[in-house]
C-alpha cells in the first residue's frame, strides 16, 4: 500500500507542481509575510562604498542586464542610485545590452529624486556600446572614441557632466549590473590597470562566481540578486520590490525543498521494489 502511495507521488504531473509553484509565488505579494532579511558583509560594503562617494564625483553604472533580469537586478540598481542621488554624485549610465535603455528608463522612473536632478549635468545615459571586452577597454582609455553623443543625440562635448570626464581615472567607481561576465571585463580593464573600484550588482546565478573576487578585495561590494536588493532596500531605509519578492522566493524555496525531500523519500521507499 505504502509503495503505491510513493509511486503515485513520484508520478505527479509536473504541470501540477508548476501551478502550485506559481500560486505560492503570488500569495506573498497579496499578503506579505515579512520574513526577516539579514545584511551580509558584501552588501554592506557595497552600500558603504556608494556612501563614500562625495558630491560631484563621477560614478559609472554599466547596465549589462536586460528586462528579463529586472526582478533580480533592478531593485539593487534603484537602491544604489537613490544613495548616489543623496550623495549628489554625477552618474553616467551606459549599456552593453540592446534593451539596456528600458532598464535605464525604469531606474529613472522608480527614483523620485531624479526630478531634482538635471539631465546632462547630474546624470546622463550614453547608450549602447558594442565590442564586449574591447569596448570596455576602449571606454577606460577614451570614452569619446566610443560615444560621440548621448542617446538623445546631444554631442558628448555639449554635456556639462562630461566636461572633465573621458577616461577611467576620471571616474570614482563603477557599478556593473550583469547577467553574465561583463563585470570581469571591468575588473580586467578598469580595476586592474587603473585601480578604479568596481562592484557587482548581479543575478543570483553568478553570485558564486564573483564571491572569490569580493573575498580577495578585487570587488569592493557585491549584491546577490533579489536578496542583495532586499538588503540594500533595508540599508537605504526604503523597502521596495525586492523585499516583497524575497517573501515570494522564500515560499517557493520551501516548496522546492519539500519536493526534493519527498522525491528522495519516494526513491528510497521504492528502491529495489520495482
Amino acid at each position: 500500500m505504502s509503495q503505491g502511495i510513493w509511486n503515485r507521488l513520484q508520478m505527479i504531473d509536473r504541470r501540477i507542481i508548476y501551478w502550485v509553484l506559481f500560486i505560492i509565488l503570488m500569495i506573498p505579494f497579496i499578503r506579505p509575510l515579512g520574513l526577516p532579511v539579514s545584511i551580509t558583509d558584501q552588501t554592506r560594503d557595497l552600500y558603504n562604498g556608494i556612501r563614500s562617494v562625495k558630491e560631484g564625483e563621477v560614478v559609472v553604472i554599466n547596465i549589462s542586464s536586460g528586462v528579463s533580469a529586472w526582478a533580480e537586478c533592478l531593485p539593487s540598481l534603484v537602491a544604489s542610485v537613490k544613495v548616489l542621488n543623496q550623495q549628489k554624485a554625477k552618474i553616467i549610465f551606459w549599456t552593453s545590452f540592446v534593451d539596456g535603455q528600458l532598464t535605464y528608463e525604469a531606474i529613472v522612473s522608480k527614483v523620485p529624486s531624479f526630478k531634482e536632478r538635471v539631465y546632462g549635468t547630474d546624470y546622463v545615459y550614453l547608450g549602447y556600446y558594442a565590442g564586449a571586452e574591447t569596448g570596455v577597454a576602449q571606454l577606460a582609455k577614451d570614452i569619446r572614441s566610443v560615444f560621440t553623443a548621448d542617446y538623445k543625440g546631444t554631442p558628448i562635448n555639449q554635456l556639462p557632466i562630461m566636461q572633465n570626464v573621458n577616461k577611467a581615472e576620471d571616474v570614482k567607481l563603477v557599478l556593473s549590473s550583469d547577467t553574465g561576465d561583463v563585470c570581469d571585463y571591468y575588473i580586467r580593464q578598469w580595476r586592474v590597470p587603473y585601480g578604479v573600484p568596481v562592484a557587482e550588482i548581479g543575478i543570483a546565478m553568478i553570485y558564486s562566481s564573483y564571491q572569490p573576487h569580493y573575498k580577495a578585495g578585487i570587488l569592493f561590494g557585491l549584491s546577490n540578486g533579489s536578496r542583495g536588493g532586499a538588503e540594500l532596500e533595508k540599508l537605504v531605509g526604503e523597502l521596495g520590490d525586492a523585499t516583497t519578492t524575497m517573501d515570494a522566493i522564500n515560499s517557493s524555496h520551501l516548496l522546492v525543498i519539500f519536493c526534493i525531500v519527498l522525491a528522495n523519500l519516494g526513491y528510497l521507499a521504492t528502491r529495489g521494489k520495482k
Binding site: F22, L25, F29, A71, G225, S226, T245, A248
Partner: peptide, 8 residues
C-alpha cells in the same frame, strides 16, 4: 534562486 526570482 534566479529562476524563481524571474518567475516571481
Amino acid at each position: 534562486l534566479f529562476r524563481m526570482s524571474m518567475l516571481s
